[in-house]
């Protein structure tokens, strides 16, 4: 078991190195430091100005290491800074990136944890319900609604719900959030701020998730062991919960565990639209301001979380599925 975990971790580490290279290619080789400087300073910036900007933000080194001079390249600096979690300061306003990210985490989690949990429970329950009534009109309707939900852009969900529930009906504030709310424990206010974004978030991913869970359940329901369970005299409820759910957990787990990193990253659009100052908002600001230094770190952190989640999935497989061999 330990060897298995170690091997998974080692491969994860290798993937991190690959991700870093990819980030470097995107942010340094595709968009060269000169372009970055020009975007920050404006198109008319002079050569000297650009050099000064590059020196200030540490872009004034050669891109790739050469045989003659292996140290001191941007590539090396990039690996060192991200691997040691020394993210430095933002190119845009010199604020320390590490602190910004730590501050944004709380707000993101406040939005995404309720969203994740309620979405998961609701999706599983509905999928079980629909699978229970498979091949009846309830099932057909359920699938139809799921596809309907999948065909609507999240932008429409957000804009529409803000318009209807916040502007016309005035049930909730259109947007806004106060990080102090979490510290103060003012749950009532927190709930009012979060109700709409959480609902929209659940709604937007609901169709796809439920349909996926349903497909998994229906696939399991048709398997031979389910017939055996029925032939033993097990009731439908027992068949569903004890036999089908347990087997279906294996494919479902992949989808769910891999979604966990997004708890930290928040939802880009939801945070931006509803004015929640989490990591998603930070990312959107970075895009708007062409702040590559922040964007880079965000990509890195998300990839890191994603890789960890993947390792967690592999390990949890061994717990759920006795057939997985640790080779």
């Amino acid at each position: 078991m330990l060897a298995y975990v170690l091997r998974k971790l080692a491969y994860g580490g290798l993937t991190v190195l690959g991700v870093l290279l990819l980030i470097f290619v995107i942010f340094f080789a595709m968009a060269r430091p000169d372009d970055v400087a020009r975007r920050a300073l404006g198109e008319k910036a002079q050569g000297a100005q650009i050099e000064k900007w590059k020196a200030k933000h540490g872009y004034d080194k050669p891109l790739w290491p050469t045989l003659a001079k292996p140290g001191g390249s941007l590539l090396q600096a990039h690996y060192v800074s991200l691997l040691s979690f020394e993210f430095g300061n933002s190119d845009l306003n010199d604020s320390p990136i590490g602190t910004t990210i730590r501050d944004g985490m709380g707000a993101s989690l406040a939005l995404t944890i309720p969203m994740f949990l309620s979405g998961l429970v609701l999706g599983l329950v509905l999928a079980l319900f629909v699978a229970f009534f498979r091949e009846t009109y309830i099932d057909t309707m359920g699938v139809f609604l799921c596809v309907l939900g999948m065909s609507v852009s999240i932008l429409i969900y957000i804009i529409g719900s803000q318009f209807v529930f916040a502007k016309m009906l005035r049930w909730f504030p259109i947007s806004g959030f106060d990080t102090d709310v979490i510290a103060d424990g003012n749950w009532n206010l927190l709930l009012r701020f979060l109700a709409l974004p959480v609902t929209v978030g659940v709604l937007s991913s609901f169709g796809g998730d439920t349909r996926f869970y349903r497909t998994v359940f229906v696939e399991e329901v048709n398997r031979d062991y389910v017939r055996t369970a029925r032939a033993k005299g097990a009731g439908e409820m027992r068949v569903m919960l004890r036999h089908v759910l347990r087997n279906a957990m294996i494919p479902i787990l992949t989808r769910v565990v891999v979604a966990i990193p997004f708890l930290f990253t928040g939802s880009l659009l939801l945070e931006a639209f509803f004015g929640i100052p989490g990591l998603g908002s930070i990312t959107v600001d970075a895009i708007a301001g062409n702040d590559f230094s922040v964007l880079r770190v965000m990509v890195y952190i998300f990839a890191l979380l994603f890789i960890l989640a993947q390792i967690a999935t592999d390990i949890s497989y061994t717990l759920v599925d006795p057939r997985v061999r640790l080779e």
Binding site: T15, V16, G18, V19, L22, I23, I26, F27, M30, A31, P261, F262, T265, L268, T283, I287, N290, F292, L295, M298, V299, F302, A303, F306, I307, Q310
Partner: peptide, 15 residues
């Protein structure tokens, strides 16, 4: 390993 949307954004922003 890189969340789709972020990779998408990074490439479009960079290019």
């Amino acid at each position: 390993s890189i969340p789709t949307l972020l990779l998408l954004i990074s490439i479009t922003v960079a290019l």
